[in-house]
Amino acid sequence: MVPLTQKMTLPEQVTSWLMSDARTQTASEASAVGLSLKKGGIRWGEFAIQSSLGFCALISVITTIVIVFVLATESYSFFSDVSPIDFLFGTQWVPLFEPSSYGVLPLLWGTLVITFGAAAIAIPVGLASAIYISEYASARVRTIVKPVLELLAGIPTVVYGYFALTFVTPVLQNILPGLNVFNALSGAIVVGIMILPTIATLSDNALRAVPDTLRQGAYALGATSFEVTTQVVVPTGLSGVMASFLLAISRAIGETMAVTLAAGATPNLSFTLQESIQTITAYIVQVSLGDTPADGIAYKTIFAVAAVLFLLTLILNMLSQWVLNKYRAEYD
């Protein structure tokens, strides 16, 4: 056995350091040396880095403040010319010609028609796809279909606009003769196809998060796969599924290029899907494509309608987060 003292022997440099420097220092010198080890001492380099990282995090807050500030001030100056009552309840949207009229309802209606049409297509189909991928498909099919869906979710919306004009509308015109080249139906279908992968992939994630023990329990009680899916799996994953619906709807509301290309630019309060309509987003594009003078009222209208758009999507996004947090099922 090695004697303990021998093991404890320190290298000569260390012992000499212990003997000379540290031991002979005055109290103040010792505290100066020990600063880097003292708890609570400020390391300036570290502090600077942390502050600059914190500043980067603040940029996101500043972004939000700027968005709200710009929309609010420009809308305020718009509302000093147009009464908010006329804006919110007016049924004529004629901002660019005389006599002008600034009722936002036709634009809002156009947005809602597209959104509801798209949701009516994408929600059942998307949920069915999610159920197929998570509950029925074999592992091999899953590894093919899931990335394909994710890829489809990444196709730019202007490409969907191209599909609408060159494919969907001509096909629809064969079925419904007399259909306008620009029509709400084609826009709704294309936006529906566009948000479908979002619903399918996010709902699939939610359904897959449902623990297998719940499924096995239900099967053990003699339930069929249909009953397990509709009465156990989907209700359990409902918060995630609902959140995916809300997110997709909020995407449909904010969708711009596909509806601009497919649905046209006619503010319209009609109940038919066969005519051209204009959504909030399509109106904003229309104004910015023309050369609108920056001090005119037409320029201000885009901020007012953008504020409406911002509030709509904000409410939906908050709702989807609330649903996720409130109804999150924990089965651990």
Binding site: A57, S60, V61, T63, T64, V66, I67, V70, L71, E74, L247, S250, I253, G254, E255, T256, T281, I284, V285, S288, I302, F303, A306, L309, F310, T313, L314, L316, N317, M318, Q321
Partner: peptide, 25 residues
Amino acid sequence: RLIELNISNLAGVPSIVYGIIGLAI
């Protein structure tokens, strides 16, 4: 937590609204 909430909301703002902010700022 506020910053987190803020970021997830920013992710949901329609792209055209960013366009308008870009135009104004």
